[in-house]
Every structure is written in structure tokens, then in C-alpha cells.
Design a protein around this nucleic acid. Structure first.
Lengths: 160, 160
DNA sequence: TCATAATAGTCAGGTACCTGTCTATATCCA
DNA sequence: TGGATATAGACAGGTACCTGACTATTATGA
């Protein structure tokens, strides 16, 4: 089947391939846990939701995604009955996102999936290896951000 | 502006953020070189094109992208006048992609952009650091591929 | 205190990937 | 040699991000 990883892949390609694996694994973990209707971008909502409610803009900042992306995730979860939105009493521009009872039930599982995948990868490749990659990427990211002009706003991202 | 990278980002998020930086930098490098109409996914076509022509399917394999993605890149480059397609004399199902004269002129630049970005990142963060990340990711990828059932086909990817 | 700037959220549209299905042709081996 | 299987490419449709432009509301500071 000739499926060896060719010797020298570009950094861009490597990042993409590994990221794709990650996304697939998160999705699979959610599926396994019986939540096939929740997909990776939704997980952030569960991760950052708070009993007092939270604005979409704040979710956006916490998860490093654009408003549009987060709005869509919230809308889908609303349709699925996991969250609901109510007007923010302190800011008439805003609406607050709350977990429904159903949503509260899912929360621990959704929050855990990222960690679960981390765990599996650590078991597979060694936790030092994974930890090393994380630290190296984080350090790189900080350098990239200070090094160029784009250092300004929440660039994007999600738990995925 | 409060833009420190928060202390512990998930691996998925890190991969995504760094990959995004990479793509932006490649795009910027192409723009700088005066080829604003060529975007990252196109670069593969220049990288792997051959004087005798090449099939889209083979480009697909080399670049680790799906047929659809590569087809689209080739179509765009055809519209822009960088490549042309002619029937494959040895396989009536297939068409071969050739660089036009114009395409041949761009080739070196398009091929160099990936390396250029690597170079810049190495200057910024240290070439050992970058090299280490590449090797770690590559090793991880190999483990991931042998570890799960997905180890079969060209997963995806591109010079980006 | 009032014009200006910032923020919450919506709307419209784009990109780079993905999946699955389908036809024509090629290859294989029983 | 012919029937199952694989491959080249086209077509239709989906996802998770992105951007920019816009309205309503809030915060700022001169």
C-alpha cells in the first residue's frame, strides 16, 4: 500500500496532517461517548460556559475563534437543545448563552475529550514527546506573534 | 492590548494557530515576490510539475490533498495562464498538466516560498528549534498512522 | 454632555479542505 | 478472454474557518 510518510515533509504540511488527526480523534471520542451530534467546534462552548451565562464575544476570545464561527456553534447547539440564549440584563446589545439541563449533562464529557486525546497520544508516543511538542509550538507562537505586525487580535483557533 | 498567549493551550489549538501563521506567511511571501494571484494551494502544482506533464492524480498523491482540491488548483492556474492540460496519450482516462511558458517563469519562486518561510522562522526562533519541531511532528505522524486504522490512503495536506 | 470610538451581534460572501457518487477506461487473474 | 476490481477525472454537497460591512448600544474624554 506504500504508505510511509515521505522523508521530508514541509512544516506546513506536517502541521496540517497532525492537526487533522487531532480533529478526527476528538470527533471519534465524542462519537464513542455517545454524542455523535456534537462536533469539535462545539466543545468550546461546553468548556467555557458558566452558570451565570456567557456572551458569544467572550466565548470567541476564550476559544480563539471568530464571532461568526462561534455564533454558528452556539446556534447549532441551541437547535440541538444543549444551550439557550437570553438577553443580557446588563447590556442591551448582548445575549447570554446558558447550558440547558441537557447541556449540563454533556459538559463533563465534552470538556474531557481534548484531554482524552492528549492522553491517548501520550500513551502512544510518550508523554514527554507530546509535552515537548506543545511547549515548542507555544514558544514558537509567542515568537511569531511578537515578531510580526499581526500581533494584535484573537487570531482564531478552537479546542480543535 | 492584552495579547499574551494564555499559558496552556491545547495541542489542537496550537497546531491550528501555528499552521495559520504558516499559511499567512507563505501567502505574504508570494505576494512580495509579485505573484499575488498565486495562493498557497497552487504552489504544489509548480513544485511537482514535470516537463513530460503530470496527472492530477499524481499531484494529489505527492501533495497529500484530495483530487477535488488539486483539480481546483489546476483549474485556477489554467485560467490564470500558468498551466495547460492536454490528453494523456498513454491513458485515455487521463489528462496531463503542463506548465506554460508563463508558468515556467514562476516555478522557481513558487517552489522557494515554503523554504523561504522555513528560513525566516529559523532566523526568528532558531533553526534547531524549527528542525526539532519538524522531526517531532514527523515522528508523531508516523506513530499515529501505524497506531490507528486510518493508516491507508493519502490523507491530505499540501505545501501549505 | 455630546461627538467619537469601541463593542455585541447579524448578514453576506469567500477559501481550502473534506465526503460520496458516477462514468469511462485500464488492469488483473481465473 | 472476459468479469471483477481499480483508477482518472467530473459532479454535487458539506465543514470550519476566514473577511468585510452593517446596526444597535455602550463607554470615553475634551
Amino acid at each position: 500500500m506504500e504508505n510511509r510518510v515521505p522523508t521530508r515533509l514541509s512544516l506546513g504540511l506536517l502541521l496540517r496532517l497532525v492537526h487533522q488527526h487531532w480533529t478526527q480523534d476528538v470527533e471519534a471520542a465524542l462519537e464513542e461517548a455517545g454524542f455523535g451530534d456534537i462536533r469539535p467546534p462545539h466543545a468550546n462552548v461546553f468548556t467555557f460556559a458558566r452558570p451565570e451565562g456567557i456572551q458569544v464575544s467572550e466565548l470567541t476570545r476564550l476559544a480563539h475563534v471568530r464571532k461568526q464561527t462561534m455564533t454558528q456553534a452556539v446556534e447549532e447547539l441551541e437547535r440541538l437543545g444543549y444551550v439557550e440564549r437570553r438577553p443580557d440584563p446588563n447590556d442591551r446589545r448582548a445575549r447570554l448563552v446558558f447550558l440547558t439541563e441537557r447541556g449540563k449533562g454533556v459538559r463533563p464529557v465534552a470538556m474531557a475529550t481534548g484531554r482524552l486525546v492528549d492522553q491517548r497520544w501520550s500513551d502512544m508516543a510518550g508523554s514527554q514527546e507530546i509535552e515537548g511538542i506543545k511547549q515548542a509550538l507555544q514558544a514558537l507562537l509567542e515568537k511569531l506573534r511578537s515578531g510580526d505586525g499581526n500581533a494584535a487580535e484573537p487570531i482564531d483557533g478552537a479546542g480543535t
